[in-house]
Design a protein around this nucleic acid. Structure first.
Lengths: 114, 114
DNA sequence: AAAAATACATAGACAGTCGATACATAGACA
DNA sequence: TGTCTATGTATCGACTGTCTATGTATTTTT
């Protein structure tokens, strides 16, 4: 299991892309959506997620809105315009990197995108 | 520039795959080959490479052979059978991870392999 | 009533990569 | 002759991002 090492550097971009796709999400929802989409292959822990979200907030990539559901509060995260730009930039870079790594580990193959 | 974060967790697998492809390589050769193959997009530093190689040696994934070229010594690294197994295992896992991430950042697309 | 799921959060540990630095040989060029 | 660049191995300390473990509290299910 080296998957936990692989996640490094990609978590942020994954979060940003999910927010872009869904418009707004709360923390627990993000962990469940990643779990669902990846069929349990990638599990984001609270100890990884919340610090990452707080940093995105501090960097003004997202804004938050607290919503009470019953007596429990949810904190929704939504991209700012700066966050949108950053999402595009980071995603481009990540795709480029994935391409490049793919190139190194099975020569002649590339990511199918476009 | 987050590329340096992305490399985390992939460096080992990249090295193993290069050794598998080339039979044997020395440190400096690895840095140059990665630079060449990735068109300068991935640069492996000495401070990253040598600790990684030393760990592979300690884990018996590679064996070394010192060769004198003129008065300068090169240390060639070659996969052991254990290293071969590990290469296959890690590569499979990495490809799976790349697939999964691709899934998260552009839905519906997958790595072209097989 | 107990257990599991939902929902947020933080602290400390850990590991991997980088930047900087070091030493030495070799070749090119002025 | 002297200097610069490339070749080649190597280590140290710093940084940073993720994980494990833990905590609190509410809601739903059994």
């Amino acid at each position: 299991m080296q998957t936990k090492d692989l996640i490094k550097g990609t978590l942020n971009t994954i979060i940003l892309n999910l927010l872009k796709e869904h418009g707004q999400m709360y923390g627990y929802e993000i962990t469940q959506e990643v779990k669902r989409k990846t069929d349990g292959k990638i599990l984001i822990r609270e100890g990884s997620l919340y610090p990452a979200l707080h940093k995105l907030l501090a960097d003004e990539m997202v804004i938050t809105e607290e919503v009470l559901v019953g007596r429990r509060s949810r904190i929704y995260y939504k991209l700012t315009s700066k966050g949108h730009e950053q999402t595009i930039e980071q995603t481009t870079e990540l795709i480029g990197f994935l391409d490049t790594v793919a190139l190194l580990i099975y020569p002649g193959k590339k990511l199918a995108h476009g």
